[in-house]
Design a protein around this nucleic acid. Structure first.
Length: 258
DNA sequence: ATGCCCGGAGCGTCCGGA
């Protein structure tokens, strides 16, 4: 079995003890991290190596930043930005071959407030992702798109959908983008295994969202057709959200037949 | 309708996050 996880860490240096504790407990083979919020030179490479993981990362000062960790297989970089968007300097994408699987680690723009330039940027960013996702499918190899998509795909993925109608995470355009990716051939791994269950991966720091279980499902795995038959398990390590100094997201994972 | 939390930048108070 190959265990792959995605975790929006919300500042890798602030959250380092939580990350190390979770890595030790969960022992994923491959990890996609988002929101490092660290410059390229301020990634805690030594501590992560000590925990048994190689790392490839694309940092940025203050915002964004993505990384791929691997416990056994080497990480072979393919690209560190989406094609297009010549003026886009935000670190939101990292793609590598790990073992025999293409791992695309992504951190989609939030897009709030709607409407506005940030929402337009989110739409544009997703146009680029859709185009690239299509290219990846054309190669007919095992690919995982993993990360913080900043989209709740359906009403089931939001504690109070009515409140989020005009929110950039739930706007109809965004749900359509997610649906179109699925129409391309990608499988939403967690929803595929649990078609009707309420599953959340994020709980705001505000208003005691965690205590009230006022959650959102924002972190996803999209599997290429070559991987779908290999999916065995999927889940969210929700308890990690309750730890001291936790990120506002919880680690989300899948297990694939080797 | 608003602030509620958290952290960064940088020094007062704002901004992004979702």
């Amino acid at each position: 079995m190959i265990k792959i996880a995605t975790y929006n860490i919300n500042n890798i240096n602030k959250r380092l003890p939580v990350l190390l504790r979770w890595l030790l407990e969960s022992r994923p083979d491959i990890v996609c991290l988002q929101e490092l919020k660290a410059e390229q030179g301020r990634f805690p490479e030594a501590a992560i190596a000590k925990a048994g993981y190689q790392a490839l990362w694309h940092g940025q000062k203050t915002w964004n930043g993505v990384a791929i960790l691997s416990r056994t297989e080497p990480i072979q970089e393919l690209r560190r930005k989406l094609p297009g968007g010549r003026n886009d300097v935000q670190s939101r994408y990292l793609e590598a071959i790990v073992g025999k699987i293409v791992i695309a680690c992504l951190y989609a723009p939030n897009g709030n407030p709607y409407p506005g330039p940030k929402f337009s940027y989110k739409l544009q960013w997703y146009k680029r992702l859709q185009a690239h996702a299509k290219t990846l499918l054309a190669h007919e190899v095992p690919v995982v798109l993993a990360g913080d998509f900043n989209i709740m795909p359906t009403e089931l993925d939001c504690y109070k959908p009515g409140k989020y109608i005009d929110d950039a995470l739930f706007r109809i355009e965004m749900r359509q983008v997610f649906a179109r990716l699925q129409q391309q051939g990608w499988t939403d791994a967690l929803r595929h295994r649990y078609p009707r269950q309420v599953i959340y991966t994020f709980w705001d720091y505000l208003r005691q969202a965690w205590e009230r279980n006022a959650g959102l499902r924002l972190d996803h795995f999209l599997l290429s057709p070559q991987l779908r038959p290999r999916l065995r398990k999927a889940g969210v390590d929700t308890h990690v959200r309750g730890w001291e100094q936790a990120s506002d997201h919880a680690p989300t994972w899948i297990e694939l037949k080797a």
